[in-house]
């Protein structure tokens, strides 16, 4: 019976949420959340996840670098290993890296909770304060927990998201998360951190402090991504768990110039091509979808840039210079081979 009631609660909550979405979709007014597409189904698509993980380019040295997260660091241990043991150790390290690089989900902003359970005018001025009731039944997740508020005017309603955050943190504290958001997320301090290129630190802390569908988290992460994009500091985020969501954000907003430029300038042609694939998966109606890849990455990229990039001149120039460099290199290699008498 208990189980049934709990299930019923969840069902009611969920059905309430879905009705929200329905009405939003039908409303003719352009609202902030209603007009947006939902990125979640695309982000959790297996192919896109694989692409994002490949593009992260796992560098074990970077994944397991000493992190300044307040934990005591242990001195490294050196071991003699046979080849088979080394392979095993590398395998386990790779598996560990995979868990460490699990990407924070990209989802839509949550909608405000407005559900009123009952209105009882006879209870008006029972007290001057709100009564907040939390169900602390064992084994319920923070997301599904029933939290209700009785207001001084006699209205009984579901708690709002910020109230839920507070109460969940009071009764079921999560280590590292704070009830009041740390001041580093305020404008001036955040700006200072971003000037010092502490992107990874900011994003990690935001992940811990906020839920992924929290408007605050989305705002902060998007701000960091846009600044990384502006300054072309992709190398700092590469091989961290935030690289995938950043690529997703860039492709989603069709802001691809800087990334492609960086990829071409640092000779990551394969990455650039994979990124165009990701771009087509996320924007299936883009005009460049029809461009066929005929074995030549550079030619394909040139055509892609022609139809999609906003700043075509810069990218074309980069591609040309890459081509020339490649030619030069080939001629040098040929010369060396000739000198060695291999040809």
């Amino acid at each position: 019976m208990n189980m049934f009631l709990r299930k019923l609660n969840t069902f009611l909550r969920n059905s309430q949420c879905s009705s929200f979405i329905k009405y939003r979709a039908f409303s003719s007014k352009v609202s902030e959340t209603g007009s947006e597409r939902d990125p979640a189904p695309l982000f959790f698509n297996e192919e896109i996840q694989n692409l994002l993980y490949t593009l992260t380019r796992v560098d074990l040295k970077k994944v397991f670098r000493p992190q300044r997260d307040g934990q005591q660091m242990e001195p490294p241990t050196y071991k003699f290993l046979t080849t088979r043991e080394l392979e095993k150790a590398m395998k386990s390290a790779k598996r560990k890296a995979e868990t460490r690089l699990q990407m924070p989900p990209v989802v839509k902003k949550r909608s405000e909770v407005t559900k009123i359970i009952s209105t009882d005018p006879a209870l008006e001025s029972y007290d001057r304060c709100n009564y907040v009731f939390t169900d602390i039944t064992y084994g319920i997740s923070n997301y599904d927990r029933l939290i209700v508020v009785r207001e001084p005017n006699g209205v009984l309603r579901h708690a709002k998201w910020d109230e839920r955050h507070c109460l969940n943190q009071i009764y079921f504290p999560m280590p590292g998360r704070e009830i009041i958001a740390p001041r580093m997320f305020e404008q001036e301090f955040l700006e200072d951190l971003l000037n010092r290129q502490e992107y990874d630190f900011v994003l990690n802390r935001a992940c811990l402090q906020f839920e992924p569908n929290d408007p605050k988290y989305i705002e902060i992460s998007e701000k960091v991504y846009s600044i990384v994009n502006e300054k072309q500091d992709f190398e700092i985020l590469r091989s961290t768990r935030h690289y995938g969501p950043m690529l997703f954000y860039l492709a989603w907003n069709k802001n691809i110039d800087n990334l492609l430029l960086e990829n071409i300038q640092t000779e990551k042609i394969e990455d650039a091509v994979l990124f165009t694939k990701l771009y087509h998966k996320i924007n299936p109606t883009a005009s460049s979808v029809d461009i066929a890849h005929e074995g030549d990455d550079i030619q394909y990229l040139r055509e892609f840039v022609k139809s999609e990039a906003a700043n075509k001149g810069k990218l074309e120039a980069a591609i040309l210079s890459y081509k020339e460099l490649e030619k030069e290199r080939q001629s040098v290699a040929k010369g060396i081979q000739k000198a060695h008498g291999i040809e």
Partner: peptide, 19 residues
């Protein structure tokens, strides 16, 4: 005691209360 957000906090373990 009313807290800074003007709330009185109550926690119930409804499952055990039902029991």
């Amino acid at each position: 005691r009313v807290n800074v957000h003007n709330e009185r906090l109550v926690a119930f373990n409804f499952e055990r209360i039902r029991y």
